[in-house]
């Protein structure tokens, strides 16, 4: 159990690590170019591992609906945005706001698609997240006002 918990934490660390490395690449190139390399290098890596382990085309992949194949295109924009954001608002703010957006949009998607869930938990969760975003926002504005000579 502790082993798997460590793996799950490590997976989160790697999400952040990947965004930082891509962000560093974007500093030298561009956000979209960093997204291209992220996908190409990832593709080569996954292909190699899949060839080693096998089972890439197991199941009935051709039966999946056409729109399920749009994930890659959305992913390209996602990675490019991460690279663009991390050099502007930092790794922590980027991660925090992306998490907030994922959670809130996840609730919206669930409600739209009629997925079952606890209404009160959804209200409380979304409320706390929005409050956190507000705190992050006002905090930033306050800090930036001080060097601008806006003391009161």
């Amino acid at each position: 159990m502790i082993f798997y918990a460590a793996l799950a934490v490590l997976a989160g660390v790697l999400v952040s690590l990947s965004r930082q490395i891509n962000g560093r690449l974007a500093l030298s190139t561009s956000a979209m170019e960093s997204s291209f390399w992220n996908h190409l290098v990832g593709l080569v890596f996954i292909t190699a591992v899949a060839l080693l382990i096998g089972g890439l085309f197991a199941g009935d992949p051709l039966a999946s609906p056409w729109w399920a194949y749009l994930g890659g295109t959305v992913g390209v924009i996602f990675i490019a945005m991460g690279s663009w954001l991390i050099q502007r608002i930092g790794a922590a703010q980027t991660a925090l706001m992306i998490i907030a957006g994922q959670m809130v949009s996840g609730v919206v998607l669930d409600v739209v698609m009629g997925a079952p869930g606890n209404v009160w938990a959804r209200i409380a969760g979304v409320g706390l997240i929005l409050a956190g975003m507000l705190v992050a926002q006002t905090g930033k504005r306050k800090i930036r006002q001080v060097p601008a000579g806006a003391k009161r």
């Binding site: 591992v49 899949a50 890439l56 051709l62 039966a63 994930g71 994922q102 959670m103 949009s105």
Partner: peptide
Amino acid sequence: FVAAFLTGGLLSLMVLFNGTLATYGSLFF
């Protein structure tokens, strides 16, 4: 901040799309 929040929304779409692929094919796929 708004851009990062919307980027998180993209992640939900990716989870939906890629997760649907995973129900038909392998996790590798």
